[in-house]
Design a protein around this nucleic acid. Structure first.
Lengths: 334, 334
DNA sequence: ATGAAAGCGCTAACAC
DNA sequence: GTGTTAGCGCTTTCAT
């Protein structure tokens, strides 16, 4: 028998069927372990798969079955550790269920979010995961029209489109303020990054200020830095804030990175914490626990948010809002 | 039991063609702006697209054209900031070229890497991006058989399969050791995380030790922690190392996170830096610059690695190795 | 400049 | 238990 050399870059299911001496649908059934087939057939098919090094084409499979196992993430940033954490939680669940994570980064720009959401939809994902509730009308329209599951993450202060997983940023801000008031601080300032883009940080700030006001200790001063949140901006922000308002007794930072920067500023200037100045963060990063004085902060369920969100999608759960809450960490800096 | 999500009826290209009163191929040409068509036809098609809210199905498009615009990342971790940084650099380039990033996380497990690489290949990506050169034989086999571009990232100490972008970890370790020797340190220790899994950290450590040995100041002691790299592990590691070998004059950490932990340990114990103990890291994170004493470290081109890798893929560059180098940062901690 | 028709590789009915 | 066949929604010749 003469075997002709075929320059075929990829093996197809049809070739496996030929090699195994069975029909295509049988191979498909065996590979998906669905429907019925004999032990013997299964072995023959698997042998052929092995021999030919067959890798199923999920593009074709998805098209044929009109149900994709792609989950699209449209996230603001990969620099803010929050989002890698969410992705991490989600991808663990997705991978074990045969789903595939796809992502793009909006850079906190809602126009980009709209464009990227549209681009994502072209892949006909099973679900689209987004940060928060603030989306353009265009984004909302195409999402609703898409018919795929929509998951809004890390924000519960608003109305969910379909699924929502996270916690209330407004409440996180309130709890932070209550804590500082309870500890007796009255001259309280704020150092944060761009609130217009990071709307969740904006909601925390609102909740924080509202509670301070109600507690008869309205926000004494604030310093909002233009760029993204970072340790350096935190340091710079506190420096500016104290230059302007030296008599503050506590500062609330938009997150732990910023707070760490503030901590470094105090270290460098010999400002003792918390006696001269208290510092409070947000996120509950591991780094806060390793500081000489553990950082007082709010621990957020970032990985859990990703996990639960993925689980809801994978199990095709009905529309719902899942509040994972957050935890106050009474460290040593406030 | 997972439930496959079914999409609600979506608008197809055929419906757009009908609505516009043209053939399917004409719609396709207009949408991809390829081939020739009249102004008038273009307007009619675009009007119909708009009216029906048509979103092209890239699954179908990819299947028909046998050329995907998916780029698959198989990365060890999302907790180690290195990989989000690489993804960030890459996704910026990929998005503007109409490519889509897909990822999965191996958790530094080469068996998982093999399984995930295979799963990725099922999506017929244009390229697969992996960390480093250490892969199982199985991984190598399926990658080579796949016919798609392969990019190995962040490691140049080995033989590239196709494309490689990064720098030499061996050299980074050597340069770190040379620096410490040049500064006069002679009793040098090491604090690191799991070297078997993170082979790039292992290469740095090798280069470091080799240079120390050649400089007549062989590594005095080392503390390897079981878990992943973290600030807390850095702190704990330094504590243990000094308990065993108190007379060290410098410590090299497997990365900046660990080094920051060591810095915190010194702060807490009143060990003055660098006079009593010098600290040297790796990665050049922003956080190091904001420390009261800037961290002495090696800055690695993480975002650039992602960018260049993406560019090579998008432009279908010939096989090559791109050495982006790294930069010694002479901070104040060593 | 445009349309008809043949796939891309698979899944899902439906026969047998 | 297994094979046959008709699509999934597009791209791509190849005519016209």
């Amino acid at each position: 028998m003469t075997v002709e050399f075929k320059h075929q870059p990829t093996v197809t299911l049809a070739e496996v069927a030929d090699a195994a001496g069975v029909g295509e649908s049988t191979v498909s059934r065996v590979l998906r372990n669905y429907g019925s087939f004999s032990e013997k057939t299964r072995d023959r098919v698997m042998a052929a798969v092995e021999r030919l090094g067959y890798v199923p084409n999920r593009i074709a499979g998805t098209l044929a079955s009109t149900g994709s196992r792609l989950v699209a993430f449209v996230i603001p940033s990969l620099s803010n550790i929050v989002f890698p954490d969410v992705l991490r939680g989600a991808s663990a669940i997705l991978e074990e269920s045969g789903y595939q994570a796809v992502f793009s980064v909006t850079d906190y720009d809602s126009q980009r979010e709209e464009a990227l959401a549209a681009a994502m939809l072209a892949w006909r994902p099973a679900a689209v995961m987004l940060a928060g509730y603030e989306h353009t009308d265009g984004t909302l329209k195409i999402l609703r029209a898409s018919g795929c599951r929509i998951v809004e993450l890390l924000d519960l202060d608003g109305a969910a489109l379909d699924l929502a997983v996270g916690f209330s940023n407004l409440a996180a801000g309130r709890v932070s303020a209550e804590f500082l008031l309870r500890r007796g601080y009255r001259r309280i300032g704020y150092v944060g990054h761009d609130l217009n883009r990071d709307t969740r940080a904006g909601k925390r700030f609102s909740g924080f200020c509202a509670t301070l006001g109600a507690g008869d200790a309205p926000l004494a001063d604030r310093e909002i830095l233009a760029g993204a949140s970072s340790v350096e901006n935190g340091r710079l922000g506190l420096e500016r804030l104290l230059a302007r308002t030296p008599d503050l007794d506590a500062v609330y930072f938009s997150n732990d990175d910023m707070a760490l920067g503030g901590y470094f500023h105090c270290l460098a200037r010999g400002i003792s914490i918390p006696s001269q100045l208290a510092i409070f963060g947000y996120n509950g990063l591991d780094i806060g626990r390793a500081m000489p004085q553990p950082l007082s902060t709010i621990r957020t369920p970032r990985v859990a948010t990703g996990k639960i969100a993925a689980q809801l999608v994978v199990t095709n759960a009905p529309p719902q809002v899942v509040d994972l809450g957050f935890e106050l960490i009474e460290g040593a800096t406030a």
